[in-house]
Lab assay of single mutants.
Amino acid sequence: TSSHKLRLYERDDYRGLMSELTDDCACVPELFRLPEIYSLHVLEGCWVLYEMPNYRGRQYLLRPGDYRRYHDWGGADAKVGSLRRVTDL
């Protein structure tokens, strides 16, 4: 099985509160109590970021690497509604 891990930060450049995720999350704002995510670091696996909860809205593919600001993943703003692991490519 492949492993997945990413870290979410409330501010750009990996500042502020950090939360780690290793499984799908249908509602990021509810789980982490963060209305917006300004940076993230994908440590393992690929993920799909959705701008709205319950895997809706615009989708962004996140490969392992650094995303210091939301425009690094192509986002128009810092809204992160849900995240899902990519298990098949």
Results as ranks from 00 to 15, higher is better:
K79Y: 07
V28I: 09
Y38R: 11
S19A: 13
D88V: 03
P35M: 08
L49W: 00
H41K: 13
G16A: 05
L40G: 04
P53S: 08
D66H: 15
R7D: 03
C46G: 00
G16R: 06
E51L: 01
G65Q: 00
K5V: 08
M18K: 09
Y9A: 00
D24K: 07
R63S: 13
L89V: 13
L62Y: 03
D24N: 04
R7Y: 07
L8Y: 03
V80F: 06
M52C: 11
G57W: 00
N54Q: 09
R15N: 12
E51T: 12
V48K: 08
Y9W: 03
D24L: 03
R56A: 14
Y60K: 03
N54L: 10
H4Q: 01
Y50F: 10
H71W: 11
S19H: 12
C46E: 14
D88S: 10
S19L: 14
V48E: 14
Y67N: 01
D24E: 02
D24A: 04
K79D: 03
T1D: 07
E44A: 13
G74Y: 03
L6M: 08
E20W: 01
E20G: 01
E10R: 08
C27Y: 04
S82D: 02
L40Y: 00
E10Y: 05
Q59S: 13
C46I: 15
Y55K: 01
A78I: 02
W47F: 00
Q59A: 07
D72T: 07
Y9Q: 00
E20P: 12
V42F: 00
H4G: 02
V48S: 08
R84F: 03
P35D: 14
P35Y: 12
E30L: 08
A26G: 07
L40Q: 00
W73H: 07
R84S: 01
V28Q: 02
G75N: 04
L89E: 14
D24V: 03
V86T: 10
L6G: 01
R69N: 14
E30F: 05
Y55A: 00
G16S: 04
G75D: 02
D72M: 05
D12E: 13
G75P: 00
K5S: 06
G57D: 01
Y70G: 05
R69I: 10
R15V: 07
Y50Q: 00
C46F: 10
P29C: 08
R85I: 07
D72W: 04
E20H: 01
P64A: 04
R7Q: 06
A26K: 12
C25N: 00
S2G: 09
R69W: 14
F32D: 05
F32L: 09
L6S: 02
R15A: 14
L40K: 05
H71D: 07
S39R: 03
H71T: 11
V48Y: 13
W47I: 14
K5F: 09
R85A: 06
A26R: 12
E10C: 08
C46D: 03
F32W: 08
W73A: 11
Y9H: 04
V48I: 15
E20D: 05
G45V: 03
E36H: 11
L43C: 05
V80L: 07
P53V: 06
W47Q: 00
Y60M: 08
M18F: 15
V48A: 13
L83T: 07
R68L: 10
G45N: 00
D13I: 03
E10K: 00
G65D: 01
Y50V: 07
Y50P: 07
M52W: 11
P29W: 09
Q59G: 07
P64W: 08
D72I: 03
E44Y: 06
T1L: 12
V86K: 09
S39M: 04
V86F: 11
V28K: 05
R69D: 15
L6T: 02
L61W: 14
P64Q: 09
G81W: 02
R11N: 11
A76Q: 15
A76N: 12
F32K: 11
L6D: 01
R69K: 15
E44S: 14
R69P: 02
G16D: 07
R56D: 13
E36I: 09
Y9N: 00
H71M: 10
M52T: 04
Y60L: 07
D23A: 11
E36F: 09
Y60R: 04
R84E: 07
E10I: 01
V80D: 06
C46T: 13
G16L: 06
E36G: 12
H4C: 03
A78C: 08
D12L: 14
S19P: 02
R15Y: 07
G57P: 08
D23W: 08
D24S: 05
D66T: 14
E10Q: 14
H4P: 03
D66R: 12
G57A: 03
M52A: 12
G81N: 04
Y9P: 00
D13P: 03
C46N: 09
H41C: 14
G45L: 05
